[in-house]
Design a protein around this nucleic acid. Structure first.
Lengths: 337, 337
DNA sequence: ACACAAAACTAAATCGTTTTAGCAACATAT
DNA sequence: ATATGTTGCTAAAACGATTTAGTTTTGTGT
């Protein structure tokens, strides 16, 4: 049934040499351990002949490293995370690392399970966008010296690596753009788990801008929508928010909310930007082609991925935990909305 | 530097019992091997106390299975694959499987390297959208009894599992729609690696429809664009295709090409559908909101993922290779383009 | 008090690698 | 002739689990 796999022992037996020798040669340590060139070639040939495939699992057990990184995102099907994943894969691969990818679905318990799964699997490091409200587990990971980078979301007071953007400033600029264009009733729609740092900062940026412009903010300016509802495309709360608060402009804190918002506006036969203006965090390629083209805050996705990998690799190479914070720049793209 | 990890031996030592006992208890085999309830509880408590985390790598080595699946897609940042990945993750997780995700980038050599990487890592099975022109490696995998499912793309004459859609029929219907609306000069834009089955079938569906309607087809009806150019947003070939062939309608064989096409049409100041109609394979959520809303062929993404996992799990459970072909239905969504 | 079964537990092998510590043979230098 | 070094190789331990094939202890019936 199951085909017997070729091991180092098979090669050793066929050539009547020791496993040690085979291992040494196959790991390129033949020269430094003064193994006969001839013998080396024989081993290499035999390995090829038998189609030897090294067993990374055995290797991982012995060496205590798996050359695997855990990547925990909120939702891999969200284009923002999908694109980040692609760049992370790209840079990780260069150094021989593979990725175990998983989605927390913005569910705290699920995230904890997944972190444990990744630890079970002995990943060499974890990259994550955490949705936890309580960073105890993260603190534990730091204490256990697990190489880690928080992406997109950090925790106040937790000493670990972080790569993200200046959410507060970016949002502030977007809102200032609204204000400059004469808006005073500006709505903000964000996600319910109120403790996600990136989302909190985006909200704070909104508040900053409003405050600076001496505009009043009340509860009627804010809507928080459940991730679950968003996922199920249940946009009823958005609908009632818009009909009740009647904002002249809306800022959404991520791309999925923006899509929900467009859906609702269309249903309500409200047009953008005539009736309501819209700016959203996260740029998606197609926003350029939506009707109207959506204004958005673009994150430097390529760079986020690159920096993230670079930090985690530095930890893996040096063996020391480091504590870096990279705050990258966003770009406010004003289109027609 | 590196914190010593708690092993089964630590628990055994602290309680002065054997490793065997600990292992048995922790695997829920305590009752069936008649281990004292009291002892069992002690082991469980101690494991919790020491924060024992089972080492999946050691487990994988001993048991010969890693509870990991390899998922090889063309490009994880493409929404089509990102969404499929999400559903595969979902169904795989239910049975305790994690995913090593990687992107071939439509590059044959890269794909071969990635397949070997997955085998190295002893994944229990491989799900892939292969971009190979020569299926020798796939045939070898079948011979080696590696559990596998081809997704989206199959190989003629290779006896293995496949989950996908009826590309030929779906495309044919789309083209028929064009023809019904009076189009005779219908362009088709597809990807260069001409041997990807799904893309070939989509082209064939086009030919079928044209043939049935007695419309002539020449080379001027077709454009193949390099994946590399598409990735780099170099749309020059699309531009010259449109200006030279002057089609009144265009069928694109995937979502990225459609986006490139919209970009070019915009640059050429040609409007959809007045100057040129457009239908594309693959539906993306935002197509609903593009200007104009893009007509498309939607694949049953949820179902593709579900069936794929179900087939690979069946193989893993029974230990037998099976040979299933699931051809699912698409939906032609006619919007305004 | 003795046999016999059931309950409770364990030593050691195993999975496929890497690596430490060392052996044997031969060459070179003193 | 003896020490010293180099070349070429290997045995065995280790990584952390699971599992086979036991052994020992306890309980029950006669």
């Amino acid at each position: 049934m199951k085909i017997k796999k070729v091991t180092i022992a098979d090669i050793a037996n066929e050539l009547s040499v020791s496993k040690t020798l085979v291992s040494l040669v196959l790991n390129g340590k033949g020269d430094s351990t003064s193994i006969n060139k001839n013998t080396q070639q024989k081993v290499i040939n035999k390995a090829k002949e038998l189609k030897y495939i090294p067993n990374q699992v055995a290797r991982g057990l012995r060496m205590g490293k798996t050359k695997t990184l855990g990547l925990l995102v909120a939702d891999i099907s969200n284009p923002f995370f999908a694109r980040i994943t692609r760049t992370i894969e790209h840079y990780a691969e260069k150094e021989g690392y593979s990725l175990i990818v998983c989605s927390s679905d913005e569910d705290k318990d699920r995230e904890i399970r997944l972190i444990n799964m990744l630890l079970n699997r002995q990943v060499d490091g974890i990259i994550m966008t955490s949705t936890l409200d309580n960073p105890d587990i993260i603190i534990q990971l730091v204490a256990d010296k697990v190489p880690m980078v928080l992406m997109d979301r950090y925790f106040e007071g937790v000493e670990t690596n972080y790569v993200g953007v200046d959410n507060r400033d970016a949002s502030k600029n977007a809102i200032k753009h609204f204000i400059k264009n004469g808006h005073t009733n500006i709505g903000l729609i964000t996600l319910t788990p109120g403790y996600i740092s990136s989302l909190m900062d985006r909200k704070q940026g909104y508040i900053d801008a409003m405050y600076e412009a001496d505009l009043t903010i009340t509860e009627k300016n804010f809507l928080e929508i459940d991730y679950e509802n968003l996922k199920n495309k249940d946009y009823s709360t958005i609908k009632s928010f818009i009909t009740n608060s009647k904002p002249t402009s809306i800022f959404t804190t991520n791309n999925s909310i923006a899509i929900g918002c467009m859906e609702v506006l269309r249903k309500l036969k409200l047009s953008i930007p005539e009736d309501i203006s819209l700016i959203t965090f996260d740029d998606v390629e197609l926003f350029k082609f939506t009707s109207p083209a959506l204004s958005s805050i673009a994150q430097p996705i390529e760079d986020i991925g690159k920096q993230t990998v670079s930090i985690i690799l530095e930890q893996l190479k040096t063996g020391n935990l480091i504590n870096k914070r990279k705050v990258l720049n966003t770009k406010l793209i004003i289109r027609d909305s």
